[in-house]
Design a protein around this nucleic acid. Structure first.
Length: 362
DNA sequence: AAATCGGGGGA
DNA sequence: TCCCCAGATTT
């Protein structure tokens, strides 16, 4: 009886080839020296939508600052955000803190050990749950990330649009079939992602020395550039940020961002957003308090327009530095608070603000 | 199902 | 420029 179909044979070769390839090509990365689920989880959250080269130094700093889930649970959330500064997608840091508190508290320090249980943690979705379940506990849970979409789409010639729900299910099913054939799901999951990151890259994959070359639908039909199929392109919104940087002595007025917008719980300056570039800030229809600040203050400088690009927004920012004379007691608008240099340094801020503050020292 | 959430780096 | 990165959550 033919209980192994051609298709299964192909898949088996794929799994074995990738696993063998990995043993010879894997990078030496810090989170590959442990099975500690806390450290694996920490690395995976940091690496969500983040390149290894960018995330690695953050991982090192987080491990040094918070070596255990208990220590992270005990941390001030602002300190976590400050350490996260520059990584982007800041809700990851807050979800990370919530998970740390949940594990350290109700779970008594014991990390969940199965895919289904891991999935319940804040900030842990299908990818991260599969990663922890396999890397730490060797569960046959298939990771499906950007690398996996690309490798599977090319090798197996899957033309489904990866932005659609149906395609996600198709890829997840294929990935699940594949990992069932593996003797070591932890290694296989690492292997397919590493292969996508190093060999089967988005642009100009290194097909000439590819061990899957003669089994790759994309290579055999010259469609490496067309696969995977990804339709949706992001509309970029234009925004104009006019920052009033209120300074008195060495203190600067900062404000926590609390609205439902980018950079939640990070700190920036007094912000006036406009639909068009603003030239004369003294004519703004704003609150009386701000007007008083602007009248009492002395305009010390106006920065060039800086463009800050996010995935869905292009922000044009200008910074108006307003000096309040020492000794004068000027009430600040809404949530603004004067911060001494050490506090300004300690608070989490968007890179746009960090860069401006650096330029201020000259 | 689609929108939203950062910042950086490679080609 | 454009693409996309060890995605998750909200709308």
């Amino acid at each position: 009886m033919d209980w192994i179909s051609d298709s299964d044979d192909l898949k088996d070769g794929f799994v074995n080839t990738l696993t063998a390839w990995y043993e010879h090509h894997k990078r030496d990365l810090p989170w590959r020296h442990t099975r500690n689920p806390y450290l694996i989880w920490l690395s995976e959250v940091i690496l969500q939508q983040t390149r290894v080269a960018q995330g690695r130094p953050y991982y090192e700093r987080f491990v040094a600052a918070y070596p255990t889930v208990q220590s992270m649970s005990d941390a001030d959330e602002r300190d976590l955000l400050r350490l996260w500064q520059g990584l982007g997608y800041y809700s990851r840091a807050r979800n990370m803190h919530r998970t740390a508190q949940y594990v350290a508290g109700p779970l008594a320090g014991k990390f969940p050990e199965t895919y289904q249980e891991l999935l319940k943690l804040p900030g842990v979705g299908t990818y991260t749950a599969a990663a922890i379940a396999s890397f730490s506990f060797n569960e046959k849970a298939a990771v499906v990330d950007g690398n996996v979409y690309r490798v599977l789409a090319r090798v197996f010639g899957v033309e489904a649009d990866i932005t659609t729900t149906l395609a996600k299910k198709t890829f997840a099913k294929l990935a699940d079939q594949l990992i069932q054939l593996s003797d070591n799901p932890a290694t296989y999951n690492q292997a397919i992602m590493e292969f996508g990151a190093i060999q089967c890259t988005p642009v100009s994959p290194d097909c000439l020395i590819c061990p899957l070359q003669q089994r790759c639908q994309a290579y055999l039909t010259g469609r490496q550039r067309e696969l995977p199929v990804k339709s949706r392109k992001n509309a970029v919104r234009e925004r104009y940020f006019n920052y009033i940087v209120i300074r008195q002595g060495d203190r600067i007025a900062l404000k926590e961002r609390t609205e439902k917008d980018i950079w939640q719980h990070l700190y920036d300056f007094c912000l006036i957003e406009t639909e068009e570039p603003m030239e004369a800030f003294r004519e703004l229809p704003e609150g009386a308090i701000l007007n008083w600040v602007l009248q009492e203050g002395i305009l010390k400088g106006l920065s060039d327009e800086r463009t800050h690009v996010l995935s869905h927004q292009r922000i044009r920012a200008r910074f108006w530095l307003v000096e309040i004379p020492e000794g004068r007691n000027v009430p600040l608008p809404d949530g603004l608070i004067f911060c001494k240099p050490s506090d300004t340094e300690r608070l989490p801020k968007p890179i746009l603000v960090v860069d401006y503050l650096k330029s201020l020292h000259f």
